[in-house]
């Protein structure tokens, strides 16, 4: 895969990620007492930045071009990371973001809206990967070279049909499929290992026939390296080691911050940490 791993690119994407983190904090604050999905959003911020800033071959001016790469967000409880990435790419405006909690708005819930880059309506966990397999099969049948990226959480790997899909991805030799796992080690009720252990996830994925790549999911350079290592003859998985609630010192690694309201004081703390270079 053709990935720009230069220092300049790393620094550009890092700045992009910092802007996205700022937007996400604004979204969380604007949600008010209703709260926002903080934990899983902030764990995948750099993954989103690298996807939209470097990896995905998509064009907001021609959003449904057949040759575009597909990105299915399976762990859909991360719109506070996804939507800022759509702003950065030019699908939506920053001023649109606060509408994500407004009744009937285009961004509320987990909408399917390909015109603004929303390729899938997720929310019920574990289902997107099968759709991604279907889209990857289609690309092979039609001789098209787009890739299908599926962003998943680690908690949702408890769902059984995911493993049906993994088996089929190898069976049909879907080298155009890249699964990205946001391995933040937490699900709703606690750690993934306490609630339902995933064990040696790397070995599991390798045994399913995937080209398995590990990386630090908050390290831009390491993420770029990981995407650069994807194969094109077998399905790929990038297991991104991350921290749930990353960058919010009061929320990091705390399951109760899966969804929670943020106070003005907490917002100020997180923003100061971000701008003071303590996060990335």
């Amino acid at each position: 895969m053709c990935i720009n791993t230069s220092l300049e690119n790393v620094s550009r994407l890092k700045e992009m990620s910092i802007r996205m983190r700022k937007m996400a904090l604004d979204m969380a604050l604007s949600a008010g007492a209703k709260g926002a999905h903080i934990g899983g959003g902030f764990s995948c911020m750099e993954i989103m930045a690298v996807l939209y800033g470097e990896v995905l071959r998509v064009d907001p001016k021609d959003p449904v071009r057949p040759e575009r790469d597909r990105l299915l967000i399976s762990k859909n409880h991360c719109t506070i990371a996804h939507f800022p990435a759509l702003v950065e790419k030019g699908y939506i405006k920053e001023s649109d973001l606060s509408s994500y909690t407004v009744n009937g708005s285009r961004l509320i819930g987990y909408p399917y809206d390909p015109e603004i880059g929303l390729e899938y309506s997720g929310g019920s966990l574990g289902m997107a990967i099968s759709v991604g397999v279907g889209q990857a099969i289609s690309a092979k049948k039609k001789g098209m070279d787009y890739k299908v990226y599926v962003l998943m959480g680690d908690g949702e790997l408890n769902e059984g049909s995911i493993w049906e899909a993994f088996m089929s991805a190898r069976q049909f030799r879907l080298g155009n499929l890249v699964v990205i796992i946001d391995r933040n080690h937490l699900c709703y009720d606690g750690t993934t290992e306490d609630v339902m252990q995933l064990g040696d996830l790397c070995a599991k994925m390798s045994s399913f026939g995937f080209n398995t790549i590990n990386c630090n999911g908050h390290d831009i350079a390491d993420l770029l390296r990981a995407f650069d290592m994807t194969a094109d003859d077998v399905p790929n998985v990038i297991i991104c080691d991350t921290v749930k609630g990353k960058g919010l010192s009061f929320a990091e690694n705390r399951p109760e911050w899966h969804q929670k309201a943020i106070t003005q004081e907490q917002y100020d703390t997180a923003l100061a940490d971000l701008m003071g270079g303590k996060v990335l």
């Binding site: 289902m127 997107a128 990967i129 099968s130 759709v131 991604g132 397999v133 279907g134 889209q135 990857a136 099969i137 289609s138 690309a139 039609k142 059984g160 049909s161 049906e164 899909a165 088996m167 089929s168 069976q171």
Partner: peptide, 21 residues
């Protein structure tokens, strides 16, 4: 396409194919 004894995956694959026309 035979997806094996995996009926749930079959529906998702069907959806992905339908999304592609």
């Amino acid at each position: 396409l035979n997806v094996g004894i995996a009926e749930q995956n079959m529906i998702g694959i069907a959806a992905g194919l339908a999304m592609e026309g």
